[in-house]
Amino acid sequence: METGKLIVFTGPSGVGKGTLLRKLLTQHPELVLSTSVTTRLPRPGEIHGTDYYFVNLEKFQQMVANQELLEWAEFAGNYYGTPRFQVEELISQGKWVILEIELEGARQIRQTFPKALRLFILPPSLWELEQRIRRRGTETEEAIAKRLRRAQEEINAANEFDIQIVNDDLEKALENLEAALFVPC
């Protein structure tokens, strides 16, 4: 049986992680994106069990206390975490499981799952990251400033990761991502 693998995918908000992951998963359906647990409310169109497992704060705290999460963190007033059983089960079946998580969670994974491959997606510059966030048109000036401060902290931690990929050109970044994942061992 093929050995499973855990792949941690991290980078600042607005860097294009989601876009890169969607393209990667389309081209490599053998990869599995882990479904996170969150205390935030579902957005329109999101489906429980597909996009996230939506739980209340009490249930989330119970999962933390019972060590049911590989990692967890608070972000923007809500809690997010990775269900341990689901990930361990998939890896035991030989699957390659991707976690798209925040820096704090990635640091926890380094402790709880040291063999994980940890990837960090970087913007070409902080200025370009700001432009991407502004183009979304969904953030207040205060929220943009907060995201940029956090992004700088995250970028400063990029060297903690096994591989850093700059997302300056989507196709080039995807090629670099594929090379990092599928290099013959």
Results as ranks from 00 to 15, higher is better:
E46C: 06
E130H: 06
I47V: 15
Q61S: 12
R110W: 07
Q93Y: 11
R118A: 11
C185D: 14
E68G: 05
V55Q: 05
G137I: 06
A76E: 15
I163N: 05
N56M: 04
L33V: 00
K23Q: 13
I155S: 09
N56S: 10
E74Y: 12
Y79V: 00
R84S: 05
L41F: 07
W127R: 15
T3P: 10
E68D: 14
A106Q: 10
L25H: 11
P42A: 07
V15D: 04
M1G: 14
E100Y: 03
R107V: 04
L170I: 15
G137L: 07
G49R: 11
A151L: 01
I91P: 07
P123S: 02
S125T: 12
G16I: 00
W96H: 15
R107D: 10
V8Y: 00
K172L: 14
E30Y: 07
L117H: 05
E160S: 04
L181H: 09
L21T: 04
N56F: 04
E30W: 07
E128K: 11
Q152G: 02
D169R: 12
K23I: 02
E130P: 04
L170V: 15
Y80P: 06
C185A: 14
L69I: 10
L41G: 14
L129D: 01
R110Q: 15
L6H: 03
F60G: 04
Q131H: 07
L33H: 12
R118P: 01
R132F: 01
Q164S: 13
A151P: 02
H48K: 00
M1A: 12
I7S: 06
K23V: 00
E139G: 03
T138E: 14
L122K: 08
F60L: 04
G14D: 05
A143N: 12
E171I: 02
Q108Y: 03
P83D: 01
L99E: 13
S125N: 10
S34F: 01
L117Y: 02
R118K: 13
K5E: 14
Q164V: 02
H48R: 00
E178I: 11
A157M: 10
Q164C: 10
I165Y: 06
T10E: 01
A157R: 08
T138Y: 06
S13Y: 01
H48W: 00
G94T: 12
A116I: 03
E142W: 02
R107Y: 03
G4V: 11
A116G: 08
K146I: 01
A143I: 06
L41N: 14
V87R: 05
K146L: 10
L31W: 06
R107M: 11
L177W: 04
V166N: 07
N167P: 09
I109C: 09
P44A: 13
G14S: 07
L174W: 03
L119E: 04
E128I: 11
L25S: 12
Q164F: 02
Q111A: 13
E130S: 10
E30S: 14
N56H: 10
